[in-house]
Amino acid sequence: NMSAGRPFRGCACFFTDNIFVARFGLHVRYRDGPQLRRDHGRALRERGCRSEEQFREVLREVEAEVQRRKQLIHQSVERRAIISKCYRPKHPEVYTLQDSFLAPEFLEIMRFCTSPGADLQGLLSYLESFSDKRIYRLPVFTEEFCQAFVDELENFEQSDMPKGRPNTMNNYGVLLNELGMDEPFLTPLREWLRPLTALLYPELGGACLDSHKAFVVKYSLHEDLDLSSHYDNAEVTLNVSLGKEFTEGNLYFGDFNQDPSPVPKYIEVQHVGGRGLLHRGGQIHGALPIASGQRWNLIVWMRSSAIRNQLCPMCRRKPELVEAEGFGDGFTEPLEEEEEPQTVDVCALG
């Protein structure tokens, strides 16, 4: 995958930063043991990590996660090759995005966004807005598609195919690039959304979202119940509720990570089948525990190389570029002749 002829890259901070210590609900940065103790010892103690043995366990956990991340690209490529060769889809039609999968209201919103004179004010009349946090809900998929898609995902889950974790915080779900869905399904979906994100999030590169990472997460009583507070490695996130039947498990949203307040105001948002929430990747959020049933969500982290090439959203530094596979983490190498832009068109940056 390329952006304007440039291959996508990752940032080296992936191997050192934002490592989640699940039992203490803490994200840490890791260089070595003494640094971990120095930077995070107090926060770990406050969360119940009080003995030396507990700290050593955390250290082992963190080191194992770093090793896992270092092997990730190679293992993902291997899994994808096996899946491509050996997996027999139950619903092969869901792998290629078709207009018929999209809710009629979604198509209507996109027609508005591409009409002459479309503006934010007009767009907001089509969307549900939540507080002042720039979180919006809109219909995305039909119920029929959601059912077929979840059925396909369950078929894959029950197969003996190799499976990667969606991310460091979810153990249950599917990385959609490993199912071969990036080009035929997710890239067209991102392109469908671009006129919408251009109006909603212009300063985040909403008009030039040029890559993504997409996965489906699954919550159930005996697996992942909930999700701790975090922000996404994305400029804009789409989170679509696919079903099935479940109770509770609302999402909650706090501050934007670049604009924290001393006492964050949280809001709760319910999932509605087939509908998607759009929010800024940097909006701190999490998921409350489900009380019964099973909840499947499609998460699409949408990225703009023009924005993130200036500043990595995870380490808040100029990205230190490393080789990556596919869309990587959405960074691109600077062009040789690139100069500082004279205008403030964010999509011309990068």
Rank of each mutant, 00 (worst) to 15 (best):
N233Y: 06
H230P: 11
P92Q: 00
Q71L: 14
Q67M: 03
G122L: 03
A12L: 04
F215L: 04
V66P: 03
E323T: 09
E183H: 05
S51T: 15
F15T: 02
A207V: 02
I19Q: 06
L311K: 01
R194C: 15
L200I: 01
Y201T: 01
S159Y: 08
P264Y: 06
F8K: 06
M169E: 10
T142F: 10
G249F: 10
V322K: 09
Q158W: 12
F15P: 03
R56D: 10
H74P: 13
P92R: 00
V346C: 00
V236A: 02
R47V: 11
L72C: 13
K218I: 08
M302Y: 12
L72P: 07
D210Y: 05
D32P: 10
E223D: 10
E65D: 07
L225W: 15
R47D: 12
M110G: 07
A118E: 08
E268F: 11
C113G: 12
L277K: 03
H230D: 11
G33A: 15
E144T: 09
Q310S: 13
F130D: 15
Q75W: 01
V322M: 12
L36Y: 10
R50Y: 06
A81N: 07
E61Q: 02
N239Y: 06
S292R: 09
R45Y: 12
G274L: 08
M110I: 11
Y87G: 13
N257F: 11
A198M: 08
L107V: 11
S220E: 10
E143W: 00
F15S: 05
L36P: 05
L186R: 03
K90W: 04
E323M: 06
G330L: 05
